[in-house]
Structures are given as structure tokens and as C-alpha cells.
Nucleic acid binder design. Structure first.
Lengths: 353, 353
DNA sequence: TTGGCGTATTGAAGCGCTTCAACGAACAAG
DNA sequence: CTTGTTCGTTGAAGCGCTTCAATACGCCAA
């Protein structure tokens, strides 16, 4: 081995392979002094410090974080297991979490489970074995025993977009029911009382909650307001187009005056199909989406929407995790954030009849 | 310390804190045997193995990967520094890279540099210190000295969407010029000879290359084909709308019969503005985008586009990295992939005049 | 000259693992 | 009963770092 030879000769060391003791030798100081230069430079005499830094430079020394963390038992890393890196909400959350981590001097490592339960567990275990300080998890629907396992090893896990377990862990979620309520209320306030809720499958927790919120809004409004439910197969543009075409085909008097859609893509498809059939948005039918995606802002008619504060969710989740890691007083809790209304042209107030 | 006490007592160990020697003691075997059970179970006698596994279970032992990697000098992890986790191309690349890594039994960790040069370097250094096996980098335009530094430490770095340095490193890129050529040729073959190239700023490497390709296509086609260049400020829907409005306002005879757009968002905006002014797509103006984004497929008129094989880019890049890590024969090279044409309605062959 | 004190430096112990030479037991062949 | 093999197991050495008690070195006051 070339490395071994060089190392053995004591003269040269392969680049990136120099250890602290190599540096110490080169600088003519003790191992501990090198460590001090790296970690507590202020307690080292300036001349000594300079010698050590020079040696580090000459040898191209790179501190070995494995050994470092192993020796001091501390970690400067957080892990984030993301269910779907292709989903903007999670990307936003990741950005927020990263920001908060950086503020605390921590690095955030992402692992994409790609909507795969097994992969999610693998990465969870991997972070556990890698001895990260804590783990953020944006999970798939489903049992979270792997998360529980990691927790039982003394490593905190905070869930995002999923509630914490009562008294066991922290979580950050959005009040989906409230989002549905906001969306429907927005339309009701604009005089749209024949509402239609579009979205599905209803087995999706978030969709069901949004529907419940819309129902509550209509019920509280009273005044003859109605809510028709059109369950779609998926939350896609395509599903939206189909629904839009169906609505456009109705007699004008049978059409809803407002549509609450459980997703922006769905709403965008709807708008496309309606406009293609000369049903005007928002004059004939107002429509509001959900998620504040690109779809919403970039549609032909900019679509009003209800958005989750992804960035804030990430910040808060990371904050909870850091708090839990710090030890001391910590009460497990789930922070529930309010979704926000984004008003755009698709629910503008024209002179509707 | 509670931990210390429990550990000292030799009876109990705090959960997740058990070490291999605790397991060995509990199972009544030697340390090395526990290691064998974990790493080479087949050479351990079944009864011994069972005892050890039982002890592992009872103690909730979690292998410490820091110590493991430190001791054997190997890493089971790759790092991927992504310039923008919000960009679908990079997400696709990440997916491909993850797939290839998993096939090789490696974990892929993502770090989002968020289009920030400093952050990119930080993560690069962090992966270096963490002793990952190798690093994938989808970089920002700009000097790559941090990458070079990591390489000089003997840790391979492969760039994606950026060429490798001649004889120094590997890279995977897409032939942007060819993409522009394909796009323009596609329109020319459909009888559109008055072409317009939309995109900007031209200082963006990719945009300039795509334009060059379109120019070459027009030149090679001859036959009186022309190419007008409309430089836009950005590659957004909004820029597209402005351009579309401008084109719609022209006399029909002054309009291009085909538009080559440097981005799907731009093309989508264009289509929206044109259709709003009753210019028909593709009858009056055919249009082709670039990037194979959502925008393209989900526009009112599905837009033809040229797409980069992101997934394949990721797979190949990870493959190159793994090859380089394996040592042995390895020739640094840059793999240039061909972009692909996606035909959709916006360039369909109607009976144009 | 001696004692005392603060500052700078030292180096051994230990973090939890892998590796590997060495050992022991069991068994077949001579 | 010996010798040789094979198979399973052992435990010390070492990975590169942090930590901390111990020491060395001034330097000033007594």
C-alpha cells in the first residue's frame, strides 16, 4: 500500500489521510494541543496556534467527524425523513427545518423515503445507527413503530404533518378541518351558497377533514346554503377536467355557484374544463383550491387557495426537536397551525346574479 | 448521571445505550463473537447466534455506526448536495441516484444548498468530515474549488448537470445544444419554417446552448426557414404571457408559425396568452417547450417538450461514483446524455395553411 | 531564595466498533 | 494414542478523536 508506506516513513501522508497525531508530530506539539486549537483556540498561545494551523494546512488535514462524535458523544446533525421530495409542501417544510437547524449550528440531512414504508423505516434506523441528534419525520399514513423504536433508544423524533403521540412525542400539523371551513366560508361570504366540494378519495385523512370543515361552514351559514359532494378518484388535473366537464354539461340552474376543491391541481383541471365549455370563472362558478401550489397561481385564471405554512411548520418542528434534544424541561406537545387563505381571481367578486 | 449509574451497576443499561460489550457480557460470549453475529452470522454456531440475538433484543442494542465506520474505514453512505430541491429535474436525479445507491447497498443522504454557494461548500465539507464514501454534486454555476478540495482528500466527487473536469473527475450532463436542435427540427418537420426562439437571459449556459441548437437546425434545414430570437427576462409563466400577448398583437402574417421555448413555464404562459387572444395552438402557432415539467403536460393544450432524463442522470452519476469508489481501473469521464422529445398536442399536425 | 499562582501544554484513558492472530475442542485418519 | 484438520471462539490492538488530571513553566511577592 502506498498509503502505508508513506505513513510509515513518517515523512509524508496521503492527502486527506492525515490524522491529528500526524499534525501534532509535524507541529512539534502534543495531541491535546491540536485538539485545543480546533475546539478552544483561545486557550492556546498564539505562536503555538500558528504552528499547528500551518501543519494542518501543509498536511491537508481534515477532521474526522466519526471519531469526533464517537469520542464526545455529541452530534451536530439532524435527520429528516421525507415521505415525498416531489411534494412542494414537504420541500417547504424541509427549507424551514433547515433554516432553524442552521440557526442552531446543526446540519440537516434529508432522506427521501419516496412514499415507501420500508424505505422510511430503513432511513429511520439508519439515522438511529448514525447517532444523529434527533430525527424529523414527515411520515406516510401508517403505523409509526419504527419511529417509536428510535424514540425508545433515547433519540427524539418529531413528526411533521402528523400529530405527536399524546405525552410521547412532539408533532406539528395543520388544522385541515379549519382549512376546509375557511375555503367554504370564503365562497359563502361572496354570496355563493350552492357549493360543491370536490376531492377524493375520502379515505385520505386530509380530504375528509377538509370536507368536514366545509360542511361545518355551510351548516353554520344556514340561509339555505347547500353543499354537494363530488368524490373524485384522485387529486389530479385529469380528475379535475372530468369533473369540470360534468359540471359544464349540467343545466345552468343545476350548477354550483362555488366549488371547494381539496387540491389545486383538481381545481386547475376544473377551471380548464369549465372555460373550454364557456362557463365563466368566477362569474358563473367561483372556485377555490387547496395547497397553494404552482397550479393555483399559474392557472389561466389565478386560483384562490388555502395554503399550509410549510416553512413555518419546518421551523417549528425543528425547534421542538432541538428543545427536546437539549434536555431540561420539555413537555411533549403537538403544535397545530392554521392554514391561510390566498385570494385570487377565481373567487373575485364580480356582479354575479 | 443515571446512565453512568446503571452502566456501572452492570445490571441494567439505559435503552439505546447498550454497547456490544454489554451484549457480549449478557450473552456470555466474547466481544468478537457479537461482532461476528452482526457481520458474518454464518460462521457462528446457531446456538451461540441465538444467545447473542436474544441479548441484543433484551438490551435494545443499536449498533453504533460511527464506531463501525471508524474502525473499518469503510462507509456505507453517499452524499448528494443538491442546488435546488424545489426543481423537478434535481428531484428526478436524486431519485435515480437513490435507486442506484440502494442497489449497491448504500444509503444516499441529501443536502439542500438552496441555491446558496456558501451552503453548498458547507455541506461539501461536512460530507468530507463525515467520511462518506463519495459525493454527488448538482452545483451552482460557479467555481468548484470546494469540490476540488474534497477530491484532493481522496474522496470522489461526481457532478451532475455539470461536466466533470477533464481527466480530474466524472460528470453527467445533457446535450443542451442537441435539445435545442431537436425542438426546432420537430417544428420544421411539421412545416413550420417561421420560427421564434423564446428564452432568457441568454447568459444562462443552458439557454444559450438551446438557442445554438435551434440555430443549427434552421441553418441545416435551409429552404428559407428563419429564426427570430425573443430574449425574455426570465423563464417564467409571466414572461411567457407577456411574450404571448406581444405575438398575438402582431399582424397574422408577422407571427411565427412555430415557437421554440427554452422552458415549459414560458411556453405555458405563451399558450395562455395566445389562446386568450384567439390565436389557435397549434393551428396558427405551434409551440414546443423544454424540461418536461408539469406545466407542459397539464397546460390547457398539452405542450410538446424536450425532457432531460433526470432519473437516468442520477443513476449514471451514482454509478460513476460507485465505480470510482471501488478503486481499480477507473477512467474519469463525462457522460453526455441525449434529451428526449415528448410530442403532444401543441405541435400536432393539423391542416395548417 | 523560596513559595505560590495562573497559564499553557501534555499524554493517557476511553468512546464502540472491526479485525485477526491465536487458541481450544472435536473429530477423522494413521 | 498421536497427529492433523476443521470449526468456533477469543480478546487485544487499533481506528482518530475528546477529555481531563497532571505537569511544566514562567513570574511575582515575600
Amino acid at each position: 500500500m502506498v498509503d502505508a508506506h508513506l505513513r510509515g516513513s513518517g515523512a509524508l501522508v496521503a492527502p486527506g489521510t492525515a490524522s491529528m497525531s500526524d499534525v501534532a508530530k509535524r507541529a512539534g506539539v502534543a495531541l491535546g494541543t491540536v485538539s485545543n486549537v480546533l475546539n478552544r483556540p483561545s486557550i492556546v498561545a498564539p505562536t503555538t496556534r500558528a504552528k499547528v494551523l500551518a501543519a494542518i494546512d501543509e498536511l491537508g488535514f481534515v477532521r474526522n467527524n466519526l471519531a469526533r462524535s464517537l469520542a464526545n458523544g455529541r452530534a451536530d446533525t439532524l435527520g429528516f425523513v421525507i415521505v415525498d421530495i416531489g411534494n412542494f409542501l414537504f420541500v417547504d417544510i424541509a427549507r424551514g427545518a433547515q433554516e432553524a437547524s442552521a440557526d442552531a449550528g446543526m446540519k440537516l440531512l434529508l432522506a427521501n423515503s419516496d412514499v415507501n414504508f420500508e424505505s422510511q423505516n430503513d432511513y429511520l434506523d439508519w439515522f438511529d445507527e448514525a447517532r444523529v441528534g434527533g430525527v424529523l419525520l414527515a411520515p406516510l399514513d401508517g403505523p409509526l413503530d419504527a419511529a417509536q423504536r428510535v424514540r425508545s433508544h433515547g433519540r427524539p423524533v418529531v413528526t411533521v404533518n402528523w400529530p405527536g403521540e399524546e405525552g410521547q412525542s412532539c408533532g406539528v400539523t395543520v388544522d385541515e378541518e379549519h382549512g376546509g371551513f375557511i375555503a367554504a366560508s370564503h365562497l359563502l361570504e361572496r354570496g355563493r351558497t350552492r357549493l360543491l366540494f370536490a376531492g377524493g378519495p375520502l379515505s385520505l385523512h386530509a380530504v375528509a377533514e377538509r370536507l368536514a370543515g366545509a360542511r361545518r361552514a355551510v351548516a353554520e351559514w344556514g340561509n339555505g346554503a347547500t353543499l354537494e359532494v363530488a368524490e373524485t378518484e384522485r387529486l389530479t388535473i385529469r380528475s379535475g377536467r372530468e369533473l369540470g366537464a360534468e359540471i359544464a354539461a349540467r343545466r345552468a340552474s343545476d350548477r354550483p355557484s362555488g366549488i371547494v376543491s381539496a387540491a389545486d391541481a383538481l381545481a386547475a383541471g376544473c377551471v380548464q374544463a369549465l372555460m373550454a365549455s364557456n362557463v365563466r370563472v368566477p362569474e358563473d362558478v367561483a372556485i377555490i383550491g387547496y395547497d397553494n401550489n404552482h397550479f393555483a397561481a399559474d392557472s389561466i385564471i389565478p386560483i384562490s387557495t388555502v395554503g399550509q405554512p410549510g416553512h413555518e411548520m419546518g421551523r417549528i418542528a425543528a425547534g421542538l426537536l432541538l428543545e427536546e434534544m437539549a434536555g431540561g424541561e420539555h413537555e411533549h406537545r403537538t403544535v397545530i397551525l392554521a392554514p391561510e387563505l390566498f385570494e385570487r381571481a377565481s373567487t373575485a367578486l364580480p356582479d354575479f346574479r
